[in-house]
Nucleic acid binder design. Structure first.
Lengths: 102, 102
DNA sequence: TATACATATGAACATATATTCATATTATAA
DNA sequence: TTATAATATGAATATATGTTCATATGTATA
């Protein structure tokens, strides 16, 4: 008896959701965000901690910044990055926990 | 005073988490999963509903099946697919809601 | 058996993506 | 100003990914 009122996803939502998950689909970006669970860090500190070259980290941070998943703060020559989206960070944390306990 | 005990992500967790998010990073797969919120559907029903060709849907369903995000049930010539990971579906639903109300 | 229908599969292709290299920009200190 | 350090950027490249096409596989029916 119940009719099917399927509401298709609009283009904008679809794009935003897919972009957000794309950010979380790359191991390097996951590792960077995982570091930023704890505290803010400079580009070079992230690069050193994860054994990645500076350019690579910088590119990935730009990606994350464009999606507003991280924010930055300049202090002299150094730029500190930190998380900027609680919702996404919570999802990432949940997923890591879920994957770990399996 | 508090020391920093950073626990790096192990390879296996990293791979599993990134793969799961990769599944959710493509608009076509999101649309398929979004359809499967409601009910189980055959390959051809999905293809028709989303205006996708049958082969494409089949490929994407295989991807989702390999990650155990969907399961299938055969009935004669028809194969019905349905969701198979509550955690991931909840995350997807939340993210769609989050993106919509913004 | 032969035919039709639903789905799966592999190859091919165009596009997207991650990483590196070289270099530019920005800020500080000598 | 010059030199040095931290970060950002653009080009190049190798690899990954999504889609389509043609065809194979599986299932039911005549």
């Amino acid at each position: 008896m119940s009719e099917n009122h399927y509401q298709p996803l609009d283009e904008e939502t679809l794009f935003l959701v897919s972009q957000t998950f794309k950010a979380l689909s790359d191991p390097t970006r996951i590792r960077i965000l995982h570091l930023l669970f704890e505290c803010e860090l400079s580009v070079s500190m992230i690069a050193e901690a994860l054994h990645l070259n500076q350019s690579n980290v910088s590119h990935q941070l730009r990606f994350l910044k464009n999606l507003r998943l991280v924010k930055y703060r300049r202090e002299g020559k150094t730029v500190f990055y930190s998380q900027d989206d609680e919702h996404v960070m919570r999802i990432l944390q949940q997923s890591i926990d879920h994957a770990t306990h399996h």
